[in-house]
Write a protein that binds this DNA or RNA. Structure first.
Lengths: 361, 361
DNA sequence: TGGCATAAAGTGAGCGCTCACGCAACGTTC
DNA sequence: GAACGTTGCGTGAGCGCTCACTTTATGCCA
């Protein structure tokens, strides 16, 4: 195992002038240029410069050019704190997600941010880590920036978070899930339907005794809905009830493998395994390989998320592909529409069950 | 392929009272409570309430309790725009990354955000998508919020971005890379050393003719440094030069597989393949399997990133594991230290070359 | 009891900007 | 040529808070 290591914080002092204003150095209002400075240089009123930026057509073209020149010469960077305070909008969009690490929502945030930036909206990000209390804190913190809108994962929040969001006056878009009560608008998938589709797919391939495996955090209402969709399908088909094997944390292959062992020990007859995430499914596949079980022959495995690697492993993994891109895009569009005064929306987006080798018998 | 689809935006109008203030409804200063309202309810001056929040020990315990009660009764949410404008700090930390989608930095942002939130700092996120022009826009946009600090991926930026960052007065922490000139502080890895280690590992296993495969965006200086580290190692060993097979976009398994075909067509003698990312390596492994090549027997494959799935595929993938968590944590610590007035730092963090089956001959 | 330090509150100014309005100067109309 | 819109810019107020300073209540010692 190769290793490089010198964490020694070797301080390299750059140009001392460049070092930020030390706390305590109060009076030194840094060299940031203000609208007033630009205005006095051009010889017009402050307001005219402001207007040249916000409503260019209301200022004489020749003057506009001179102002632009001065803005550039002085390297003006607007102070949006002041702008937000004085104006009505703040041009901040709060985004609250439950996890970045497991990359569930990374792609969603990615496209969302790109789309919003085109409209000069800045994303303020927060990660609740599936903790309702953290979510509450986060929502408070984000609302204290008076955002123009808030996008948040899920429809089931800490009660205080829900109330704060509902009464803050800004448009709220709940993402990823569309089931249940929504605060304002929502863009997401019907997770119960996904669970049903996962179960139906396995049943159609002849698997009869199904299990749901993975991490299941208290606040992960989406996974819970998928599991209950599966359970409902089994009940309607008159089959034995769903076996649930979950942990309140984790979500990696190692978890999948260890849950698999528990499953095989307790419910040897299970032949269809649906995982909370592809990462867990990878661990399940690895575990089954290690104990000499054949997939899809002996047992079928279904994932969720359609991670890249799913099509590269052997057997390739049957999984559900959420329309991440679409969720990001439609969330951005909904935010913009709501800011523009349009009505709230509830948009159900597509997903696909990709049938691959892990269930192909 | 199962599919659910009704993207029909079925508008569901919630309680009309809850709908946010429509633009145009100007005079309606929303029902947000201000410090002044709290103050008048308690019967003290505005400033006393402010102090009760910022410096609780300067206000009589009994009064503090009454103020807290009023804050809660009125459901006060501070206006940080006003606070930031009036005060010195803004409590925003700008974070500029080059990609979220490929999940390279998702974990870094994840831990960074969590650590900062504990200190009441909000992350403002921006994604430059490996586009220098976008990076410039983003840096301007973020600086317009007068952040308390900025964390940014890489050490090689758009010149204007570098200048803006250098002169904005806030601490700047460059992440992921530590090579080359830095603006203020840096927390990252020595990517050239990683490239050398990747090459040396393959050489130590008897591979002789090496290639570097993957997407290589114009702004991805890190990958470029790894490739040049490899090239240097080969040159020093007197071996044939590194074969580079890259594309300016993409980064998925499909890219890996298609680059592999190009590689096999043009340089049949290559026996050691280092990929820009694990995702690309997965595609390479899939491609090799499809053409009946044996890994590690015929060719060795090395990835970068150590994605979960790497230990689940067959053969398991040799890869480099960046200390993502450590980078996030140390970046947060550096930001806090710099805000507290400490000296700039340059921290080189660990990484590991995980030797697995794909190079085990 | 006076003098002085300290604690606990209030006062006033201002952060940098936006918004509603005011007020000239210049057409345009009948 | 008086009445009216239009264009182009300036004025003043104020967004909600923080900060430096001042004022008033309280304790402690000589």
């Amino acid at each position: 195992m190769a290793r490089n290591s010198d964490e020694a914080p070797s301080a390299t002092v750059p140009d001392p002038d460049e070092v930020g204003a030390r706390p305590g150095a109060r009076p030194e209002r840094r060299g940031t240029t203000t609208l007033a400075m630009v205005a006095s240089r051009v010889g017009v009123s402050l307001n005219t410069v402001s207007r040249a930026l916000r409503a260019p057509h209301t200022v004489r073209p020749e003057l506009k050019r001179r102002i632009d020149q001065a803005l550039q010469d002085l390297n003006y960077v607007p102070n949006r704190l002041a702008g937000g305070l004085a104006g009505t909008r703040s041009d901040i969009v709060g985004v609250v997600i439950t996890s970045l690490f497991h990359s569930e929502f990374a792609a969603v945030v990615d496209t969302l941010q790109a789309q919003l930036l085109d409209r000069n909206l800045q994303v303020m990000l927060g990660n609740s880590r599936y903790d309702p209390e953290e979510e509450r804190r986060l929502v408070r913190s984000i609302l204290s920036w008076r955002p123009a809108a808030v996008a948040i994962v899920g429809c089931d929040h800490h009660p205080e978070a829900t109330e704060l969001l509902a009464s803050c006056g800004a448009p709220i878009v709940e993402m990823w899930d569309v089931g249940g009560d929504i605060i304002d608008s929502a863009v997401g998938m019907d997770h119960e339907a996904i669970g049903r589709a996962q179960a139906e797919h396995l049943l159609s391939r002849g698997y009869r005794r199904l299990a749901f495996l993975g991490s299941l955090r208290e606040a992960d209402a989406r996974a819970r809905k998928r599991a209950s969709g599966m359970a409902a399908t089994l009940a309607e088909a008159g089959l034995p009830p769903l076996v649930r094997m979950t942990r309140p944390e984790g979500g990696h292959p190692d978890l999948g493998e260890s849950l698999l062992h528990e499953l095989l020990a307790a419910h040897r007859d299970v032949d269809g395994i649906v995982c909370n995430s592809d990462a867990v499914a990878f661990g399940v596949l690895r575990g089954l390989r290690r104990v000499g079980q054949n997939v899809p022959g002996d047992r079928g495995v279904v994932g969720f998320g359609d991670v890249d690697a799913g099509s590269c492993i052997s057997p390739t993994l049957t999984s559900v592909r959420p329309a991440r891109h679409a969720i990001g895009r439609l969330t951005a569009e909904t935010i913009l529409a709501r800011i523009a005064g349009e009505e709230p929306r509830r948009i159900t987006v597509d997903w696909e069950l990709l049938e691959r080798e892990s269930t192909a018998r």
